[in-house]
Design a protein around this nucleic acid. Structure first.
Lengths: 166, 166
DNA sequence: AAAGATTGAGGAATCAATCTTC
DNA sequence: GAAGATTGATTCCTCAATCTTT
C-alpha cells in the first residue's frame, strides 16, 4: 500500500526523486567534509557570502539564499565564526539586524574547496545528463519551487533582482 | 566565485536542484510530523515494510530500499520498535542477519498516514508538473542514480527483480 | 506588538568502534 | 577475516522560548 494512489509512472518518478534528495546531499557532504572539512551547507553559506557585495549579507537574507531556517543558520554561523571563517556585526541602519561577513580565512577556504566541489557537481549531476536534460531539470525544479518556496526567496524566480536593497 | 566554472544554465539548474533537495524533505517532514507523528524517513521505512512479502525485510535490504546507512536505520528501528510499530528478530537462515517486520500498529500507522502524505506529494511535486515533465523527471533521476547509487540498490534500476532472494 | 536574531534543550544523523556469526 | 548489524560519542538540526530594537 502506502505510496499507491499514484499512477505507475508517477510512483516511479516520485521514488527516484526522493532517492536523489536523500543521496545527493550525502554525497556532497562526504566529498566536502573529506577534502575541505566543511559541510555542504557550510560551504554553501560561505559561497553565498563570497558572491555578495562586500562579501556581506544580513542573516535573514542569507537564510533565504541558503534555504535555511534562521535558527539553523545562526548555529552554523556561530561555529563558522569560532573557526574564524566569518564575522558578525550589528547592522548600523537597523540595530535588530546582524550583518554576516566572509572573513579572509573564509574566502581562502571557499577558494580552496571550490574546484573539488565543482568537479563533484559535474561528476554527479551535470555529466550524466544531456544539456537538454539539464535545461529540463532547471525548468522542473523551478516549477517545484513555486510551491516549495512560494516567495521565491532563495532562487529569486524573478532573477533580475527586485527593487529592494541588500 | 564558488559555483562558477559552471555555465549559466548549468549553474541555475544546479542551484535550483539543491534548493529542492533542501526544501522538499523539510516539507515532507513537516506534514508527516504534524499529522502523523512520523518523520518522512520513518514513514518510508514503514511503507517499504508494508509492501514487502510477509511485511518483512532484512535490515540490510531495508537500508538499501530506503537509501539509508545501516547505522541510521538501526537507530530508527530501535525507536520504532520502542513505539511498537515494528519488530526485529534473528534471521533463522543466517543468524548474523536481522529480520525487520511491520507490527500491526505499524500497519495501522501507515494506513492512517498515507492519504495525507500522498496528497502532499501530489500538491508539492506532481500537480505543479505536466505529465510529460513527470516522465522527464523520472528519466533524469534515473540517470543521476546511476552515479549516486552505482549498484542500483534502492531503485533497482533493473525493475523486474533480479534473481536473488529476499 | 512585530521584526530580526539568538539561545538552550531535546532528537536525530554520522562516524568509528565493536560484537557476533559465517 | 569478512559480512551483518548494533552501539556510543559527537555533531548537527529542530522547536519553542527569549531578547532586543523598531
Amino acid at each position: 500500500m502506502a505510496t499507491r494512489w499514484l499512477g505507475d509512472e508517477e510512483r516511479r518518478s516520485w521514488l527516484r526523486l526522493i532517492a536523489v534528495a536523500e543521496l545527493l546531499p550525502a554525497a556532497l557532504d562526504a566529498q566536502l567534509r573529506r577534502d575541505a572539512g566543511l559541510t555542504h551547507f557550510e560551504y554553501f553559506v560561505l559561497a553565498m557570502l563570497s558572491e555578495a557585495p562586500d562579501r556581506t549579507l544580513r542573516m535573514s537574507k542569507l537564510a533565504q539564499r541558503t534555504n535555511a531556517t534562521l535558527p539553523r543558520l545562526s548555529h552554523v554561523m556561530r561555529r563558522l565564526e569560532n573557526r574564524g571563517l566569518v564575522e558578525r556585526s550589528v547592522c548600523p541602519e537597523d540595530r535588530r539586524a546582524t550583518n554576516a561577513t566572509l572573513a579572509t580565512a573564509g574566502w581562502d577556504a571557499v577558494v580552496a574547496a571550490a574546484p573539488g566541489h565543482v568537479q563533484t557537481v559535474r561528476r554527479l549531476v551535470l555529466d550524466p545528463l544531456t544539456s537538454a536534460e539539464v535545461a529540463q531539470l532547471g525548468r522542473i525544479c523551478t516549477s517545484l519551487l513555486t510551491t516549495l518556496d512560494p516567495d521565491g526567496h532563495m532562487t529569486r524566480l524573478d532573477e533580475p533582482a527586485r527593487a529592494e536593497d541588500p
